[in-house]
Design a binder for these strands. Sequence first.
DNA 1: TAAGTTGTTCTCAGATTGAGTTGTTCTCAA
DNA 2: TTGAGAACAACTCAATCTGAGAACAACTTA
Lengths: 250, 250
Amino acid sequence: MNEQDFLAGYDPRDYPAVAVTVDVVALTIREGALHLLLIRRGAPPYAGHWALPGGFVQPDEDLAAGARRELAEETGLGGERLRRVHLEQLGSYGATDRDPRMRVVSVAHLAFAPDLPDPVADTDADDAIWLPVTALTSRQLAFDHGRIIDDGLERARSKLEYTPLATRFLAPEFTVTELREVYETVWGHPLHAGNFHRKVLSVPGFVESTGASTERGGARGGPRAKLYRAGDARLLHPALLRPAREETVR
Amino acid sequence: MNEQDFLAGYDPRDYPAVAVTVDVVALTIREGALHLLLIRRGAPPYAGHWALPGGFVQPDEDLAAGARRELAEETGLGGERLRRVHLEQLGSYGATDRDPRMRVVSVAHLAFAPDLPDPVADTDADDAIWLPVTALTSRQLAFDHGRIIDDGLERARSKLEYTPLATRFLAPEFTVTELREVYETVWGHPLHAGNFHRKVLSVPGFVESTGASTERGGARGGPRAKLYRAGDARLLHPALLRPAREETVR
DNA sequence: TAAGTTGTTCTCAGATTGAGTTGTTCTCAA
DNA sequence: TTGAGAACAACTCAATCTGAGAACAACTTA
């Protein structure tokens, strides 16, 4: 059956039985390490494994709304705090055998959040927790969530290059050093502080000065840093390219 | 209901009724213009409008397989020719009201094809046709397909920057000038021939020489051009950046 | 007060880019 | 057969961007 037939009118019971869920790869930075929001599964299949927060798309909500709702439910976040979280669609996963019980197509989303309080085991009985991404092996993950997380991480790394979304990991006001640490954490590379500083200030619309400075210098000394907020650019021109992986060598 | 509940076991009739389709934004270049594969709708809703080729995901196929099947059905393509077409997932569209009759989530895909013969009105009665993308207004398009096409075009333009996928619009062997014309057509900008030549040959793995040259010079004169085939790079390092839109100049 | 740390700015060599030029090989038409 | 125009490929050169390091002042803790 093709779309033409489908659209020409049909019995609603006529189409193949597929369930649609949304899953969320929610990232944040805690103590200098990239963390991921996960839920411990209690029941089979994959009991005891970690899974992404997610669930059915409701009849009255679109995909993005479903993802935002799932995120709100698991983090206990709402209002302004939730609105500051960046959320975008990552991709859909629909392998026929990805759920042992029935055909499920999951629309995965990717979220960038500033450091948030620990999720409270709230309305639901599942315990959600922020886990460092380095602490994960794909054997500990339910379904194809290991693959989804890998895709999300790669997307996140790439998005930092050509969008100003790194600021979404930070509070509304931040220093250039804090911004650099976001890049270093997500990319897993140290960056040259001076060059990074020059670049960030030279890309139009990336950050704008608040005029203020931090109250104190760094924990181990140094001058007070100037404060910035996110600018109005949606795209970085020119981009901040990550160091090429050395594939040319050997 | 969240995923936890869902996965804990449930009645298959329990989940919200959603249909999943795949749609394909198939692009090719004909006579120096970017063309798009579209199908003329015969029946309401949107009778007489253009729609993307697409249809239900079948129980035994994953999303990419469904998209490739739809593409094959509408182009009459198969075997090696079909395998050379680049196909990737574009994104999912699930607004609650995007189909007036029921909830449909469509997983859109993006395809890059070399110039193909005109589709034959084949197994199905719908007439598929390659249309220049410039000849479209979104009023002539069914559902949210105008939006999907816009997203596909933007993705295509951006993919040419950092991947070697421009070669997928060409025959297995091509000249640097043909490759440049792909970029010019998709980006809608003339490019500096000399600089483009230098850049393409300097990016590792983008193209490799076949050693051969074209049989004849250009239609209006000029020497025979050297022939190249696609190299083994999956990503271009450094990228071929498109000229910045002049937003600074306003 | 001394020693160490850090934010910010500067310098400078090397690479990359944009724009134009040159030389040569080819087609077409007179 | 030849002249005119076209276009591939290689080149030059100035402007810009990048990577790496250094300088220096403003802060911290001991």
